[in-house]
């Protein structure tokens, strides 16, 4: 909405990618809605009808986003730093992939350490023991005392016997 000189006329590239994503999501819903057998029964509205409606709306919103991106430039975005982002996402992904084998304590230690690294704390000799301590504390309180079933692994086996 804020015209910002000559460079402001340049179409917003990100808007086209978002528009494409929305159209693709919409198409997926329309396709899936059409695949469902029509069992509208007495209501006249079947299980596939609402997904199709939402799908069409998403396609329209995608087109709207593309037009908007053509007419108006995107706002100037702050530069994103990929390294902390990768630390954080990497920590999440490794934790998700491994927590059911290595157990909650080690999984959360990895996540905690990577998250701390993402925010600039790269002293691993401090972060790893802290994460380990936090994981052990949570496991002791929630799994052992409050009977919440958390994934177990070698550490849980050695300390808590489960």
């Amino acid at each position: 909405m804020t015209p910002n000189g000559a460079s402001g006329r340049r179409p917003d590239g990100a808007a086209f990618i978002i528009a494409l994503g929305l159209v693709a999501l919409g198409a997926l819903l329309v396709w899936d809605g059409g695949r469902i057998p029509d069992k509208a029964g007495y209501s006249g509205v079947g299980p596939g009808d609402v997904p199709k409606l939402i799908g069409y709306a998403l396609v329209l919103l995608g087109i709207g986003t593309a037009i908007e991106g053509w007419r108006n430039p995107g706002p100037k975005r702050a530069k994103q730093h990929p390294v902390p982002l990768l630390w954080l996402l990497g920590g999440m992904v490794v934790m998700v992939a491994s927590i059911h084998t290595i157990g909650f304590v080690l999984g959360s230690t990895i996540l905690f350490t990577c998250a701390a690294a993402a925010f600039g704390e790269r002293r691993f000799h401090v972060a790893i023991p802290s994460g380990l301590g936090l994981g052990l504390f949570i496991y002791a309180v929630f799994d052992v005392l409050l009977q919440l079933n958390l994934p177990g692994g070698p550490i849980e086996m050695a300390i808590f016997g489960r």
């Binding site: 927590i99 959360s108 701390a116 993402a118 925010f119 949570i138 919440l148």
Partner: peptide, 26 residues
């Protein structure tokens, strides 16, 4: 921030596991 967000993420994981302990949920 490093400790705060580290803690938030570990607890968020705990909350998710508490509701449904499945790899798909994570």
């Amino acid at each position: 921030q490093p400790w705060l967000y580290g803690g938030i993420l570990v607890f968020a994981t705990l909350g998710t596991l508490g509701v449904n302990p499945s790899p798909v949920e994570l």
